[in-house]
Amino acid sequence: MSDTVLNVQSLTAGYVPGLPILHDVNMRLGRGEIVAVIGPNGAGKSTLIKAIAGLVLVEEGTIMLGARNLVGIRPDEMAIFGIAYVPQTNNIFRTLTIRQNLMLAAKRSDGLVDDLIERMFTLFEILRDKQLDKGGKLSGGQRQMLAIAMALVAEPTLILMDEPTAGLAPKVAEEILALVQDIAEKGVSIIFVEQNVKAALRISNRTYILAEGRNQIDGSTQELMEGQVIKEIYLGGRRLETS
């Protein structure tokens, strides 16, 4: 497939030294590719995303961004490498206005910021109308949009999204997913965690299934759709080892 942007190899990581949550996880992401991560609650999906973002302790393995190993790089330095992380919760600042949130997220501080923010408002008209409101006033869907806009305004090459559609009405969730596809089409690579298996399989190029902190299977979305794997994992049946 396309050239590899991110390559996670044999990743063992967790919150407490000696008590890893992720065991020997592998994952690959190509340029402009959308990769979905699915799995039951507590599987370690968020932990995997956070590990890439530099927020959890990596005990073993590598996270290669091109030729550079991201392990040990501070979370606040990730932005320099073009990585944007949209957390599962608390992904916007409620006490700042919409516009201030965007200005904070923009890496530049020159005159181009206004242009960039303007572009976000074209993408999300609703945010333009509310730009002077505090973030705390937004609905769930609007909040997710702002969070994604904040990621985009930093002009990243790789976006990590943790359940961008969680808790949203189906219609709003669709909008967000469509947006994720649009972003990827512009050449930005995306890893996103999704609870809705069908949606994940539909919009992603490839899907990784995580359970109990281990890869279960990965492969093209097509293969997964046809296989029994997902059903088995979610129903607690036989578990497949990493393929």
Binding site: P87, N91, F93
Partner: peptide, 12 residues
């Protein structure tokens, strides 16, 4: 308001 979120935006 949120240190981790600020950090993820590249702030120290």
């Amino acid at each position: 308001e949120d240190e981790v979120a600020a950090q993820s935006l590249g702030k120290s």
